[in-house]
Design a protein around this nucleic acid. Sequence first.
DNA 1: GTTAATGATGAAAACGTGTTCATTCAAAGG
DNA 2: CCTTTGAATGAACACGTTTTCATCATTAAC
Lengths: 340, 340
Amino acid sequence: MDTKQEVTLKTIAKMANVSHTTVSRALNGSNLVKPDTKKRITEIAERLGYVPNLNAKGLVTRRSFLVGIFFTDLSTGTSESFLTDVVGQARATLSKDYDLSINSTRNATSAQGLLRHNYDGIIVLSQSKLDDEFIERVKDQGFPLVVLNRNISRNDIPNFSINDFIGSKNIAEYAIRMGHTKFGIIQGPDFFESVTQRTNGFKAALEEHDLTIDDALIKRGDYRPKSGNVAMRQILTSGDIPTCVFCENDDMAVGAINACKELGFQVPEEISFIGYDDMAYAKYLVPGLTTVRKPTDVIIKLGIEELMDLLDNEPENDAVRRKIIAPEIIVRNSVSDRRV
Amino acid sequence: MDTKQEVTLKTIAKMANVSHTTVSRALNGSNLVKPDTKKRITEIAERLGYVPNLNAKGLVTRRSFLVGIFFTDLSTGTSESFLTDVVGQARATLSKDYDLSINSTRNATSAQGLLRHNYDGIIVLSQSKLDDEFIERVKDQGFPLVVLNRNISRNDIPNFSINDFIGSKNIAEYAIRMGHTKFGIIQGPDFFESVTQRTNGFKAALEEHDLTIDDALIKRGDYRPKSGNVAMRQILTSGDIPTCVFCENDDMAVGAINACKELGFQVPEEISFIGYDDMAYAKYLVPGLTTVRKPTDVIIKLGIEELMDLLDNEPENDAVRRKIIAPEIIVRNSVSDRRV
DNA sequence: GTTAATGATGAAAACGTGTTCATTCAAAGG
DNA sequence: CCTTTGAATGAACACGTTTTCATCATTAAC
C-alpha cells in the first residue's frame, strides 16, 4: 500500500498530453497556459492526489519550507507554556507553506551540521547569554532572524524582549510600600539571564530605599515547585526569618508557600510571598499570588509578524525593529499590609 | 555576508583535485577511498565549513530528515507539558540527523498538501477520535507511524496508550472506600476522548457500588483553572452539595478548590477533591491534591524507541507493538476520611 | 611475464522540480 | 497575401547529491 511519491509532474504530463513544463506552470498558477489546459491539468493532478516533491522544489528554488524555532533548553520547565504559545501562534499566523521545526540552541552549537536544514527563517527564544554564539552565526550566514524574550546587544537583529529588571524592581517597590523591610529571594537556575535580571531588579529597589538583604536569605532553586519547597525550608529553619520572600517564578512560590504551611507559618500574615510569571493557576491559589505578568503573547506576536515580513519582502528592510516591553504587576493577596 | 550554501561537493572536489564523486564517498565514510585522500578531503570540507544540501540529498535518497509530531490541538492547555516532554525526549533520543516538525492533525486534514514534507516518520499524540481519519491516511501512505496516548482500533499500528478509564475508576473506588457517597464531576472539553474515559471510569465505579450521581452535579469545563472555578461556583450555589468532587485535571481542581475557600467551605473537611494528571505543583497545594499520575514519560519513551526501530530497520517487522498502561493513583490529603 | 584479481577513481545518469530560450501557431495589421 | 505580433507550448539545462558502471593502476597468482 506504499503509494508514496509515485505521481510526479511527468505522470500528469503524459496523461494530459503536454510537457512537464506546462504542468509545472499550470500548477503554479502561471498565466502563460491556456485556461482549459490548465483546468484539465489541475483536474488530473487532483484525481491522482499529486503532492509536489519539496526536496526537488526546494533544490531549485533554494528554499526549505521550514521555519526553525530555537529554545535555549528544551528540558527546563519555564519553556513549557512558552513553547506551546509560540508553536500555537506561529501555526495560526504563518502561511501553511511552512513547517515548524523545534530545536535547542544547545544541540545546534556543535560545529558540524549546525544548520543542516536550510531554514527559510529562524526564531530564537533566547533565555541565556550562551545563545549569543548561535545567534551570531545564524545572522552572519544570512538567515532571516528574529530573537525573542531576551535583550541582545547586536542592534542589526530584530529583537523583542521583556524587561525583567523593571518588573522585579516594581514589584519590590510595591512590597516596600506595604511596609516590608526584611526580604528573602529564591532564585532560578543561574544560566538564565532572566534570573540575573530578576535578582538585580529586586535588589536595586531595596538599595534605593536603603534596605539591605542578607545573603543567607538568598537561595537558589531550579524553577520547579520542589526546589522552592526545599529552599524555603532552609530559610525557615535558619532562625533568621524574612517577612517577605520573592520567588523568581510561580512554580517555586507554590512549593515555598507549602513549606510555610507544613512548618506552621501563616501566609501571608507571618510571611508574604511574591511570584513571577502569572501562571494560569496563580489567581486561584490561596492566598491569591501577587506576581508579575510577562507579556509573552505580545512579543511572540510581534516576532512572528516581523519574521513574516522578512520572509516575504526583500532583505532591504528600512529599519530593524526592536522593542523592550515592561511586565505588568499583578497584586493579589499574598503580600500582607505591614504599614503602621 | 550571505554565505549560505556556496560551498558544494564540487567546490571541495576542485580544491582536492578529485571528482565530486570521490568527495561524496569520502564524506559519507565509504571505504572505497584511499585513507590519505579521505583525510585531505575531510580537512578541506571542515575548513570551508561545508554543510550538505539536504534537499539534494533527500531528493536522491528519498528522505526528508524530518520526523513529524502531530497533536490533536495545539492551543489546548493539556498538551503543554506533553508537548515539551515529547519534544525534549525525542530530541534526546532520536539521531541528530532528524529535525522535529510540530503540527496539528487539524491543520493536516485539509485534503491538499496533507503531508507536503515527506516525513521519514510520524508520531501522533492523539487525544480525539477525530484523528482517526488522519491516522488512516498516514498509515495507508506507508509512513512509519506510531500513535501515542489514545487507544486506537486498528491493530496494525504501533500504539502506546493510557487507560484513563481504569485510572478514574480506581480513584473513585478509593474515594468510596473513604466513605464518600455523594459525588460531583467537573469534566474537560467534550472532544477529548480522555474526558469520556475519565467520566465513564468514574461512573463505572459508582455503579458497581450501587451509587448514583445527580446529573446536575456534572459540569463541563475546558481544562483551565478558571473553568474549574466557575463550575464549582455553580455547584456550590445550587444548594445540592456533594461531599467529593472529581476534577478531570489538576488545573481545574485548583480553580474549584479556590471557589470553595472563597465561599467559605472547608477543604477537605466539608468538600473533598480529586484531580487528574499529577502536575508538578499538585503535591504542594494545600491540601496536597489526591490525583492520578499518567505515565506519559513511559509511553513517550516506548513510542520514540519504536519509531527509531521503524526508521532503521526494514518495514518487515515481526509483531506490531501495542501497549495500554494503567495510571497510578496518588493519595494525598484532599480527600477526607468519612468512615464511621 | 602474462593474466587475474583487487583497489581507487571518475563519467554519467538519475532524483523531480523551476526556468530560460527557442519554436510553433493563430490572430492582427498593412 | 505577406509580415508582424503575441500567446501557448516544449526542449534543454540547472539545482547538489548519490549511485551504477566503466576505467585505470596496482598487486597477486601461476
